[in-house]
């Protein structure tokens, strides 16, 4: 059985999907805005009603307690949201190494969320997600608000995470070059169907 599997998985706006992903594999998703990429990721995280089944290793989506499932299928939404005032309120543990990898220091923990730039928020949201050690990363435009240097750092951090923890990723990106850089395989969504993307 595959590491991560979708069986007749039907989310809004898309035809049912069957997909098998191996451990360590990164699958990219492209397609025009509004074609249902983000909704697919939300459905895999079980945030929206949907049909069909998803499994990560032995864990079956419809049978797992939702919080447990979502800790394994970690979704990074395109826009990050924060519920408390300070950065440390949102991080379960402090990990200086991870913070440093994205250009932050220990002092960042004390920062106020309202004073962060959108790029800082996006990078901290990734840290917040990785601290929970998800087995599957559902990444919705993780580098949309970042400058070139940060994009490189985020990409290599995610690739290292996939390699070290033998996790898998579904990576939504509008940038064809990025898809080719990070993806082991890629799909384009065309009129509700996943079409393999060919890279030369």
């Amino acid at each position: 059985m595959a590491y991560f599997q979708l069986t007749r998985f039907k989310s809004r706006g898309l035809e049912p999907i069957d997909l098998s992903v191996d451990a360590g594999e990164c699958i990219t998703l492209g397609g025009p805005s509004g074609c249902g990429k983000s909704l697919l990721l939300r459905a895999i995280a079980d945030l929206d009603p949907h049909e069909g089944e998803a499994t990560i290793e032995q864990c079956i989506q419809s049978q797992a307690p939702p919080p447990k499932w979502r800790r394994q299928a970690g979704l990074l939404s395109a826009e990050s949201h924060w519920w408390a005032d300070k950065v440390y309120d949102h991080l379960p543990v402090s990990d200086p190494e991870l913070m440093a990898a994205l250009g932050f220091s220990e002092a960042t923990n004390e920062w106020e969320i309202s004073r962060l730039s959108s790029g800082e928020r996006q990078r901290l949201a990734l840290i917040r997600l990785l601290l929970g050690k998800p087995k599957l990363l559902l990444l919705d435009e993780p580098t949309a608000n970042l400058d070139q240097a940060s994009i490189g750092r985020v990409e290599s951090l995610i690739m290292a995470y996939l390699k070290n923890s033998r996790s898998a990723a579904l990576w939504v990106s509008h940038d064809p070059k990025q898809r080719e850089r990070v993806g082991d395989r890629g799909f384009q969504i065309e009129s509700g169907i996943l079409v393999p993307e060919i890279w030369i």
């Binding site: 945030l47 949201h81 519920w83």
Partner: peptide, 15 residues
């Protein structure tokens, strides 16, 4: 109003 913040917590595995 705070739909995003509530869902952000759900996404991280909060009940």
């Amino acid at each position: 109003q705070q739909r995003g913040a509530i869902e952000a917590r759900l996404m991280l595995g909060h009940t």
